[in-house]
Design a protein around this nucleic acid. Structure first.
Lengths: 129, 129, 129, 129
DNA sequence: TTTT
DNA sequence: TTTT
């Protein structure tokens, strides 16, 4: 079975580094990917795709990217579900990144506020390795 | 911006042909795509990806595929949202197929029950052309 | 059968518009795609991929791109062969572009020398439609 | 820079296992990928794409595939050149496989003639890792 | 709501 | 909850 995704788009917000309880770095970004066609009002819309990035690429993303940065992501589609507080099942489809490329002009982020790191609990089910 | 998806998987159920009020054929299938790794219980899981297929490829899918058929889909990721009856916003990520290939042994479906066609209302927003 | 290629790289030279005898615009570009790993001398090399672009996208490429422009190409691999003047068979593998995206900073090429158009003979075999 | 290829096609011959002098398993296969359109004589042609497969996937390919087997390959395009005995430079474009999937009915190859293993010299330049 |  |  084959499951291959390639996206180039812009980050919708500053990425934030999280850590699993085992110390694995992870970040979750949303890519805004402009469509190649216009809607009935003549506007170009975008698709907003959730991407999960693990380990070293996660750290690089947080270090080198900000809201609006153009990135290329290759990876695979992953689906999962959970039950929300109303007891309703919620279905999630996201991209697990295999690699991420930083495209476009690289602004100088050296003096930027270092983004905080949060320790989170990630279920083993979510791990892509 | 680039948005490219390639999947090979199995249909989770018999596809069903629908028609928009303008007469456009459309079908929505779910592809079960086996993962290439095992979970903590040693099992191989699958991702279940929603795919929307339009026009002639929709008709071909309904004619030539059944539950369990292996198909290859190329297309793009599309996101949308709607508010459910509880007034909660629901986010949907799906693949809009550009092309579909029928892989694997083709069973003889000639004598199969012809699947019904339903006329549905599809918002213009959902149309990928 | 599935045949899907996605590339992001830089043009190795200014693109040049050609026309088939039927008046179809076509341009052939080479994309330099940097590898993600270093060779035994610690250098990053690139792959140089031939891409054929037809019709409106060909015209856009010649108008908006120059040597060094970053572009994203989706398409399919195509192989062909011919016999050179020494009578030896030469095998060619290239990408036929389905779409091309102009990424990165768009310089102002308005006042640039308009590139020449050449009429060429293209065998029907080479046409991807 | 992004370099992503997905192919589904048939092996044009039985795969043969080779070994580099360091003991790395490698096999080179050609995939026949049928086109989705007909030429001017109404025939469907195919593209013949060279693929290089390394390590465990190489061994699996030789063990489980034969001429005609349907396989899915994901990987990246690689270009290289060498000078032939006439002193002419020859350019090669091939796919370096990242993963390979065995699709379609799996015949029982248990009693098949075990294919021979040959030790070959592969330049470090060709190694994709 | 999931396929072999 | 959305980017330029």
């Amino acid at each position: 079975m084959i499951n291959q995704v390639t996206l180039v788009g812009r980050l919708t917000r500053d990425p934030e580094l999280r850590k699993t309880s085992d110390g694995l770095p992870v970040t979750t970004v949303t890519l805004a990917v402009s469509r190649q066609f216009r809607n009935q009002h003549g506007e170009i819309e975008a698709d907003f795709v959730q991407c999960t990035i693990w380990k070293k690429p996660a750290e690089n993303t947080v270090q080198y990217c900000r809201k609006g940065s153009v990135v290329g992501v290759t990876g695979r589609l992953q689906t999962r579900h959970y039950d929300n507080k109303e007891g309703k099942r919620v279905y999630v489809t996201e991209v697990v990144a295999e690699s991420i490329r930083f495209l476009g002009a690289k602004p100088n982020y050296a003096q930027a506020e270092p983004p905080p790191t949060v320790t989170v609990t990630v279920t083993k089910e979510e791990l892509p390795f």
